[in-house]
Write a protein that binds this DNA or RNA. Structure first.
Lengths: 113, 113
DNA sequence: ATCATACTTAGCCATGCGCCTAAGTATTGG
DNA sequence: CCAATACTTAGGCGCATGGCTAAGTATGAT
């Protein structure tokens, strides 16, 4: 794994925007066109497209052109790096807790002997 | 849950920077002072402090002043919103897959009858 | 052929981010 | 008391982000 993981950075920063999270939440329920996705967002279309572009650049969605519409779909496997990083981080933390715990246990045993 | 969840946004955008992720990885192994944390990062101290400030603002770390040092510690519970959002998103997606699956199963049953 | 729809491109603006240097404050060791 | 250490504050620079309007292109409907 690279020290500077741009995939991970792009993924997390893409998730850092509420508009983009709402788009992903919507797409979890299935494919949709740009205008369907944009409808509930009080925002100009070009601005909205910017968010889609960033999601696609981060690999979190895929898009394809069908007629004059562009259909967007979730790329759920793209969440794995983020999920994995958080899981690793958590196990590191819990591992540290465990060692602390066993250390305290050792101390207590020593004291009681 | 708020529609515009700034906690979640702050958390994800904080995780979007490789320097900040490395700080968190280091802190998973235990408390450290600012200069200990900064040592492996080829960066001016004010710049580095900016990252710590953002991590603290996002609630991912806590800091306290001890003498002329500032000690930093991980706030592991602060990862929960991010982890939860990802888990929810995943279950939404998998739920959709399940429904698709049972739909296909239904179709196949219909066809075989 | 014409018109409406659905993006798409171009360009502008304000704010924030990530980096820097220089200078200040607060503690501690001698 | 004095100097060194460990931040901290102030201010500046360039670029990216997130928003806009206006105008263009491609496709579908009449």
């Amino acid at each position: 794994m690279a020290k500077y993981d741009s995939t991970l950075s792009d993924c997390f920063t893409a998730l850092g925007d509420p508009t983009r999270r709402r788009i992903l939440e919507r797409l979890a329920r299935g494919e949709a066109s740009v205008s369907e996705l944009a409808a509930p967002h009080d925002m100009s279309l070009p601005s909205f497209m910017g968010h889609l572009t960033r999601l696609e650049a981060a690999g979190l969605i895929t898009t394809r052109k069908q007629g004059r519409s562009r259909l967007c779909a979730l790329a759920p496997e793209a969440f794995a790096p983020a999920t994995d990083w958080l899981a690793t981080q958590r196990s590191l933390w819990e591992g540290r807790l465990d060692r602390l715990d066993s250390y305290v246990t050792t101390l207590m045993k020593d004291r009681s002997s």
